[in-house]
């Protein structure tokens, strides 16, 4: 028990220190790397708190993909002191102390109120477990995400779609073509790792039915595959890829909403799957989501509607 307490205290201390260090780092690159390490430590803490599903997603998305996006932006702005504390206007001493005071009061109140909550607090856990048998899946988190609260997940996929629209509105594919290329060691690494990652993604999707894993984790890993492909110029999207890209981005929303309309047509409630076939419905929806989420995450990393003609291998 004492050993666990020591472990917990060290882990929490490391997390808070990493957060502070990342946000106080003078150099933008240092800030991003520390933030990514923070994500991994937070994921570790969540494994400790018996949340392996979420820990997987935090490591893959919260740390990995967010980190990749931050690094891309940092490189884009290099030379303009992006993220460097030196570029930060130094706040006056009084302002610094004032903000510190306010934040201390706020966190103090948050902590005090939390302690006052009587325990054990009521929760929905029992209701979820009681209905798990009829949900079509054995993993309770997947049951909540794709059955009990499937509408939340539908709207979440819509958020991803909305962001792709905004990014295409803003992005400039030409600006990225000028970016430097990665070296040959990278390609050897990529050829080795990519097939493994695709396998992991498929495994995670299949696993989600009864163990930690599922569409989001699989989509994130597959999205990372896409990012590696884009980074290494193993795949360079061109203007011809716009329509297929649009189709895949929309697939998650259309597939999920279409499933909802299909359930309505069957005479059920919106997204009320036929109980005997719930497993199949969920698996089909998850497969569509995985592909769409992966493509969207990679598309967000690419950061623009692709333009230009295909380039030959010899041009590289």
């Amino acid at each position: 028990m004492l050993l666990w307490l020591v472990f917990d205290l060290v882990l929490i201390g490391a997390i808070v220190w990493l957060a502070w260090a990342a946000l106080a780092a003078r150099d933008g690159f240092e800030m991003i790397v520390l933030f990514m390490v923070l994500g991994l430590f937070v994921a570790l803490a969540w494994v400790r708190l018996q949340a392996p599903d979420v820990a997987l997603a935090e490591a893959a998305v919260g740390s990995g993909i967010t980190g990749a996006l931050l690094l891309k932006t940092w490189r884009h702005r290099r030379g303009r002191a992006a993220g460097d504390a030196a570029a930060d206007a130094r706040p006056s001493r009084a302002l610094g102390f004032g903000v510190m005071g306010l934040v201390t009061v706020l966190t103090g109140m948050l902590a005090a109120v939390l302690v006052l909550i009587p325990r054990p607090a009521p929760s929905l856990a029992e209701t979820v477990f009681a209905n798990l048998a009829v949900s079509g899946v054995d993993n309770p988190v997947t049951a909540v995400l794709l059955n009990f609260r499937a509408y939340d997940t539908l709207l979440e996929v819509v958020v991803l779609f909305a962001v792709v629209v905004v990014v295409w509105l803003l992005g400039d594919a030409e600006a990225d073509r000028r970016a430097p290329r990665l070296g040959s060691i990278f390609f050897g690494f990529a050829r080795l790792v990519l097939p493994v990652m695709v396998l992991i993604a498929g495994y995670l999707l299949w696993l989600g039915g009864f163990a930690p894993g599922g569409a989001f984790q699989a989509g994130a890993v597959l999205g990372a595959v896409g990012i590696v492909l884009l980074l290494g110029r193993l795949y360079t999207p061109t203007a011809a890829d716009r329509l297929p890209a649009r189709l895949v981005f929309g697939l998650g929303t259309v597939g999920f909403a279409g499933a909802g309309l299909a359930t309505l047509a069957l005479g059920n409630a919106f997204l009320g799957y036929p109980p005997e076939a719930a497993k199949t419905w969920i698996l089909v929806i998850e497969a569509m989501l995985t592909v769409s989420i992966a493509a969207t995450l990679a598309g967000l990393f690419f950061g623009a509607a692709p333009s230009g003609r295909p380039t030959r291998e010899s041009d590289r």
Binding site: V144, V159, V166
Partner: peptide, 27 residues
């Protein structure tokens, strides 16, 4: 076993957050 409902909330939150972050970075 832990309560799965907050886990689902956090999973959703992570995806929403990476989306918003991507939009901010594109801007």
């Amino acid at each position: 076993a832990a309560d799965p409902v907050p886990h689902a909330f956090v999973l959703t939150g992570i995806v929403v957050l990476v989306s918003t972050t991507a939009a901010a970075l594109a801007l």
